[in-house]
């Protein structure tokens, strides 16, 4: 199978504290991969290593075909990233934000303007092209942030709690966008605390105390733990955590 992420025994230590403890997994191309875990379980640290932001203490892996340990800069070029904190510039317009990130990822002026038109049309948002981002409602900002993260057509997009603080209707719309992107072959690596969203993922992993405690499709996990919902599966596993926040 064609894996876009493969890591084996990935570990990150801060002094004597092991934030990520020998995790091994693979994500295949075009998959929506849910990366779950309670706060402090080590999700963010693991994700930072996968994005090329921090170097693993030990273990190895590759992301989008580049080595985690040595080719961080190449990885950055081929992934998209959207953080839990809203990360567009509020005093720039919708189009200016897209143009900026297009420019940062090395798109030509022509490519950028084509891409902006295309994304805004897909969002049915062309009328708001020249609106300041700061004047938009939060739900729209989050959808825009996702579009901006895919402006350079990355093969793989990391979403760090993308729907935090957003209303249920907008969350549903947001997931429509995610599924549309995945249908076009983009791999989605997403963290979330909403268990209904976990159901939308093709496969999910649950991290507890820096280790991956479970990894499979939602249906298989529910069956294995004799649970009706993912929420129950998550409780069962996360309750075993030794360390707190």
């Amino acid at each position: 199978m064609d894996n876009i992420i493969t890591v084996s025994n990935l570990t990150k230590q801060f002094g004597s504290f092991t934030a990520v403890d020998h995790i091994t997994f693979a994500v295949s191309r075009g998959e929506i991969f849910g990366f779950l875990g309670a706060n402090g379980a080590g999700k963010t640290t693991a994700m930072r290593m996968l994005c090329g932001l921090s170097k693993p203490t030990s273990g190895s892996g590759s992301v989008a075909g580049y080595d985690l340990r040595t080719q961080g800069e190449q990885i950055k070029r081929h992934i998209g990233y959207m953080s839990q904190r809203f990360s567009l510039y509020e005093d720039l317009t919708v189009a200016e934000n897209m143009e900026l990130y297009g420019g940062i990822y090395g798109l030509s002026r022509r490519e950028v303007s084509d891409r902006v038109d295309q994304l805004l049309t897909a969002l049915q948002f062309a009328d708001h092209r020249d609106d300041l981002v700061g004047s938009l409602p939060l739900g729209w900002k989050q959808k825009l942030a996702f579009m901006v993260a895919t402006v350079h057509r990355p093969e793989l997009v990391f979403l760090d709690e993308p729907t935090g603080g957003v209303d249920p209707i907008t969350r549903r719309q947001f997931w429509d966008l995610i599924r549309a992107a995945a249908a076009q072959g983009t791999t989605i690596f997403v963290t979330t605390h909403y268990m209904d969203e976990a159901e939308y993922c093709h496969r999910i992993s649950i991290m507890v105390d820096g280790q991956i405690r479970a990894l499979d499709t939602p249906a298989v996990l529910r069956a294995r733990y004799g649970a009706d919902t993912m929420e129950q599966v998550f409780y069962r596993l996360a309750r075993e955590a030794k360390r707190g926040d």
Partner: peptide, 13 residues
């Protein structure tokens, strides 16, 4: 403060 730093750091700039 605004959170845009994180995205800049992940970008290849």
């Amino acid at each position: 403060e605004s959170g845009t730093m994180e995205v800049l750091l992940v970008s290849p700039v």
